[in-house]
């Protein structure tokens, strides 16, 4: 029986987020909060492993109280339990402070039920970093395996997982000791339309919610904004384009002008010629 934990996040839907054209900033209120699409694949993969090998799927998130919705979404996909850490102390965390807080929560979950496998999505659509998963693995001192596109076999008795990692031009077959952490690619699976029994269970489900004081051995200096080495010093709009130089005249003139310019910029091509040599 496996215990798989998927780490998930609620994010603003950047596909439909509206920008304030004057300030060039994101109108966060305009974007509905959704389960990070990559994480849906992580949860789905955990559910599939549960169906294959038996066990329990838990999900863990850090976020403000409304993030309960993202946990319910995971229950719809088929997760059994949901855990959320929610506290002002966690606010403003960068990837390092996030992986610290999540690790503390994972330790607490593992005390109740030891964890065999942790699955994360490739990255979040709001942060775009993909750094939290490997960070958690390092803190727990278990192997991080990123770019996972297929899980071939999980053998809990032998403590071995075999999987495919995506490469730029193919994939590699890797074995790892367990427990370990996977960051999965989007194409690892398709998330199917949830069943009605799962929908009903999710609508009634209340996750376990922990504040910072519910966690053990926490060094508060490593949490939230205080515990984040990186800070955003400034946000600025990229320079507005100046507008191009227009090539006038009849079509034939325009074409010959353009050709002239291209030949002037011949060095653009030669740089490439050298760098590939």
């Amino acid at each position: 029986m496996l215990h798989i934990v998927a780490c998930i996040k609620q994010v603003p839907d950047t596909k439909i987020i509206k920008m304030n054209p004057k300030t060039n900033t994101m109108d966060r209120a305009s974007a509905p909060a959704i389960l990070n699409p990559y994480d849906a694949h992580a949860v789905e993969e955990a559910v599939r492993l549960k169906q294959r090998y038996g066990g329990t799927v838990s999900v863990l998130t850090m976020g403000p109280p409304p993030a309960v919705k993202a946990i319910r979404k995971c229950i719809e996909i088929g997760a059994d339990e949901g855990y959320m850490i929610s506290d002002r102390a966690f606010a403003g965390a960068d990837t390092l402070a996030t992986s610290y807080a999540l690790t503390k929560a994972l330790n607490k979950i593992a005390k109740e039920r030891p964890i065999d496998l942790i699955i994360c999505g490739k990255m979040t659509i709001d942060g775009d970093t993909g750094q939290v998963g490997p960070g958690i693995a390092r803190r727990l001192d278990i192997p991080p395996l990123t770019s996972v596109k297929k899980i071939v076999e999980i053998d809990k008795e032998k403590g071995i997982a075999i999987l495919h990692r995506k490469l730029e031009d193919g994939y590699e077959v890797v074995s790892s000791t367990m427990p370990c952490l996977f960051s999965v690619e989007k194409d690892i699976n398709e998330v199917p339309y949830s069943t009605m029994p799962n929908m009903l269970r999710a609508a009634r489900y209340n996750p376990h919610i922990w504040s910072v004081n519910d966690l053990e051995d926490v060094d508060k200096a490593q949490l939230g904004l205080k515990g984040s080495p990186t800070i955003v010093s400034s946000v600025w709009a990229p320079q507005k384009p100046q507008g191009g130089q227009m090539l006038d005249g009849k079509a034939a003139d325009q074409v010959s002008q353009l050709l002239g310019i291209m030949l002037e910029k011949k060095e653009l091509f030669q740089v490439k010629g050298e760098s590939t040599s």
């Binding site: 199917p192 339309y193 949830s194 069943t195 009605m196 029994p197 929908m199």
Partner: peptide, 9 residues
């Protein structure tokens, strides 16, 4: 009958 799998209510 809903459009979900096991969708009768």
């Amino acid at each position: 009958q809903t459009d979900r799998p096991d969708g009768q209510l």
